[in-house]
Write a protein that binds this DNA or RNA. Structure first.
Lengths: 111, 111
DNA sequence: TATCAATACCTTGTTAAACAAGATAGTGAA
DNA sequence: TTCACTATCTTGTTTAACAAGGTATTGATA
C-alpha cells in the first residue's frame, strides 16, 4: 500500500536476522524493536510470516519458553546458516543501495 | 524471483525519475544507463511499465522523436509534479535506508 | 535477395512479500 | 466481568519487478 511497505520488500529477512544475531528475541518484542529504530510499520502481521519463513529455511530456530506474566514466548535463535544468509543479504543490500544513493545524492548541489 | 528484484521494489520510480531529471532519455537507453551504474537486472520488461506508470501519474511526459538510424525514440521529460515526487521518494528512502544501514553496520566490529 | 544483429517500442503473466485485519488465548487490574 | 496488555498465528489483498514474448526499423553481410 504505502511506498514504505514496498521499500521494505526483500530486506525484512535481513533486518530480522540482524536483530536476532545480537540476541535471541521473540516475535512480539522483535516487532517493537524494529518499530523503535524507525521501521514504524513493522507490525505482527509482518513479523510472524517472516519468522516462519526463516525457520522453514533453517536460518533460525524457535523455542517456546514460559513467561511469568502473560502468554508464553517463542524465542528465536540464529543458526550458522542464518549467519551466512545474513552476510549474503548485507552484500546484496550494499550492491543495490550504493548505486541508488549515488543517483539520489548528486542533486541540488548549487550551494 | 531474485533477492535483487525484491530489493528494488518501490524504488524503481525514484531511480527512473532521478535519471530523467538530469537529462531527458528514452526507454531503451534508460535501461542501459541503469544497468551501467549497477542495477544490472533492469531490462526493458522493467523499464517500460515504469515509464507508463509515471506518465499516467503525470510525473513525466513522453515525446516521440525521429531517429536517423533505427526506430524512432520516445524521449521522456520530468514535470514539476515529477520533481516533487522525486523529493518525496528520496525522503522516504532516507527514512527507510538509514535504520537498515545501522542494523547492518554495527557488526563484526572486533578489529 | 535473404538473413542477421542491433536498435527501439510495447504487453502479458507469474511471483513474492509486506501487511491489514482478524482470530485465539493468558494475565492482572479496575 | 470487562478491559488492557501481552503474545501467538492465519487469511486475503495488493503491488511492482521482470521474464518472456511480440512488433518494427535500419544497416551490414552472405
Amino acid at each position: 500500500m504505502t511506498l514504505r511497505s514496498q521499500l521494505l520488500k526483500g530486506i525484512m529477512d535481513g533486518c530480522v536476522l540482524a536483530v536476532i544475531e545480537k540476541e535471541p528475541v521473540y516475535g512480539y518484542v522483535l516487532s517493537k524493536k524494529l518499530q523503535d529504530i524507525g521501521l514504524v510499520d513493522v507490525t505482527e502481521g509482518t513479523i510472524y510470516p517472516v519468522l516462519l519463513r526463516l525457520q522453514k529455511k533453517g536460518f533460525i530456530v524457535g523455542e517456546m519458553q514460559p513467561s511469568e506474566a502473560g502468554p508464553n514466548r517463542k524465542y528465536y535463535y540464529l543458526t550458522s546458516e542464518g549467519k551466512e544468509e545474513l552476510e549474503l543479504i548485507i552484500e546484496e543490500w550494499d550492491n543495490i543501495a550504493s548505486p541508488i544513493e549515488k543517483l539520489f545524492k548528486r542533486r541540488g548541489n548549487n550551494a
